[in-house]
Design a protein around this nucleic acid. Structure first.
Lengths: 219, 219
DNA sequence: TTTAAAGAGTGGTCTGACCACTCTTTACTA
DNA sequence: TAGTAAAGAGTGGTCAGACCACTCTTTAAA
């Protein structure tokens, strides 16, 4: 186990040092990070090495650079890292099923959370969605799920869900069919009265409908 | 909305081109990527620019470089990106609660999955854990949860859990107390017979014990 | 046949040089 | 004096070239 720690990977050390530096200097979101040339001196490394570390963090969406101005600590909520990451990850076919299952995991948890919270259930959005189905005869699939995940009030889960959604086989950008509408109405009405079991039942019926026979239930 | 798309961000273009190149040439996991000097010529860019792109992908864990040998397409399962990413994300204090809740979400889902799968329940690890508690009087908290998440057979979920675990307030690296042992035994014995409801009940009792009154239930 | 040395190829790092851009300061003009 | 234009300083973006350290193959010597 004794890792001899070969001298390589200096740019990774720089990343670490940058983390410390940001913490020590208390740089806030949107705050300015020392210039590349200054970092080069302070961290005892060539500018190109500093840049390799900074570019890495930029790709992760953790910092933002503006030519002529400087480098700034980014709001991590802007993470475009997911696109890059996912594009590579999804090359592995075996992970598709994991993505599917994990996505459903977050969705069911969101539903449970909403059912258990009077405040979440009291949100006007549920009635709006029901209304929309009645008047327009269909609704965007994503709208329903997304609102539930949003209502579960967990930004992290929401973030993960957004990521997974993009690489899911489910066509979230399509409208519900007539058949789906029945299930969705069952879902929403039971959610309104906080009946977790029945709401989840409706949810499972729905995804069964949408995803077909492929995939596996998470439980 | 019309993004004039300023010419900047060439290293991002390189990342894109690399993705295409990998796809076109059908480079498999573990396969070799052209050398930096060759990429520099083919993509019409300086070697340092190429390196900035490559280093970014390396931080993401998408490629692996070996000095003297070359650059290789990595198995994404190794991506240590999570550590880097998390360290920055976790600077946002409001996300601590989200992390806690999301972690529990993955744990409960894992428990449900294991309870529902005869194969998972038949794993010898559960009996081993029980045995260990009896003989040694305590057990590492992490071992129990981790084995359950592993047994749920979802690599992605496992990955996310590992990440969240690191930034959780729960001291997973501690041994169970005498009081905890009772709850853990209840958990494991019920898991063995596949009683999902009681297993989850034991799980909630346990985390209540470990996390105290802080935090909120996810459902 | 075995072994040692040389060479080619590759990533790791640094230096120095330009360019393009932003912001501030300065100097000039009306 | 007020307004404006030019100059300067600072910053990221990119490139070229130079070494170094390391791995692997080839060649030459024992």
């Amino acid at each position: 186990m004794g890792n001899p720690k070969p001298p390589s990977k200096m740019f990774l050390d720089i990343v670490e040092e940058l983390k410390s530096l940001i913490k020590e200097e208390g740089i806030q979101t949107g705050g300015k990070i020392p210039s590349e040339r200054e970092l080069s001196e302070r961290l005892q490394a060539g500018r190109s090495t500093i840049r390799e570390a900074l570019r890495s963090l930029e790709l992760l969406g953790l910092i933002e650079t503006r030519r002529g101005e400087g480098t700034f600590l980014a709001d991590f909520r802007k993470h475009q890292l997911v696109e890059v990451l996912a594009a590579f990850i999804m090359q592995q076919p075996e992970s598709v099923l994991d993505v599917q299952n994990t996505r459903r995991m977050h969705e069911t948890a969101a539903i449970s959370a909403v059912c258990a919270s009077d405040a979440s259930r009291a949100l006007p959005v549920w009635a709006s969605l029901l209304m929309k189905i009645e008047t327009e005869g269909a609704i965007l699939r994503e709208d329903i799920i997304r609102e539930m995940v949003v209502a579960s009030d967990n930004r992290l889960s929401l973030k993960i869900w957004f990521l997974l959604k993009q690489y899911s086989r489910v066509r979230f950008d399509e409208m519900t069919s007539v058949q789906e509408n029945q299930v969705v109405k069952k879902l929403l009405t039971n959610l309104l009265i906080g009946d977790e079991v029945t709401t989840l039942e409706a949810y499972f019926e729905w995804i069964e409908l949408v995803e077909g026979e492929r995939g596996e239930r998470i439980e």
